[in-house]
Amino acid sequence: MSVGLTDYGVSLPTYHVTAEVYEEVWGRFAARIDRKTVPAYDEDAMTLATAAAREVDAADAETLAVATTTHPQAGTLLSGPLSRSVGLDGPCRTLEFGSSWKAGLEALDAALSFGSGLVVASDTPEAPSDEDTEHILGAGAAAFAVGDDDPLATVAGSAHYVDAYLPAKFRDGADLTDLSLGGYTTEGFVEALSAVVDDALADAGLSTDDIDHAVFPQDDVKMSWRGGGRLGFDADQMSAGFVVNRMGFAAAASPLVGLAAALDAAEAGAHVLVAGYGYGHGASAFVLETTPAIEAPDSDAGVDDALDATTALEYGEFARLREVSR
């Protein structure tokens, strides 16, 4: 049997805040999305990771591959409490990724390379509320079980790319900084993305038209949408995995939550492209081909319902929560 994804799930934080609510307070909402998710006081990247991982059947996993850029206890293994929470404590390999927003795909790549494992990407990026950069920041987590036992989707192709390209976005302490370099940012993004998309499609022996669902990095809606267009993809291909519109940008978790949403939408025999970009800079892309198992009634992760289930906050409630939490 070929290695692939045997199960997947997502977890979203308790709350959301809408564009309208931001506009009332700041006069504008810089993110071009409808709303973004907000963690409760007792939620962080570890708790979201646990909740996503518990949605996945990975009881026999021997590798735990974790991705986050917002580790709540820097300098320690998030895998520790996570493993105990999902029953993987003991003889289990841990791999943790978190330097860039490509970390989620790096974790997936590692588990696929080992042929098995539980992949969890979870992130709660932050920035000061009075900066436009903050507006798009959401939170979320996705988990994937990797193995060869009746997978829902197998890997048809993959590709990677890295080069030196000075970053326009980076983390300064806990906070995200965006230098707002516009076209410069987009050019780097498209350069790295086109390299891995072309190569992954070639690896799979497919063309852009063969892709049913394409998931691109979502830290900037305009750049993501236009970048995807420049790579030859249209709105029909990009919409299913475009979770940023209701989740906001969840850093390393975003491509994997997007992938989960795309898989929810996919029928058997579909091709799903997922690409991740890391400032600094590099990219990875995978082309997945779904199997008949994707149509089993319980395979769905319910991403759409999960995005609907978050509770709305007024700006005052949101501000109070953030003021105390940060």
Binding site: Y41, D42, D44, M46, T50, P72, P81, S85
Partner: peptide, 14 residues
């Protein structure tokens, strides 16, 4: 479900 319970001595207690 697993949540942050509280934090003491800089260590998050889940």
């Amino acid at each position: 479900r697993i949540r942050r319970i509280y934090e003491e001595e800089g260590v998050v207690r889940y």
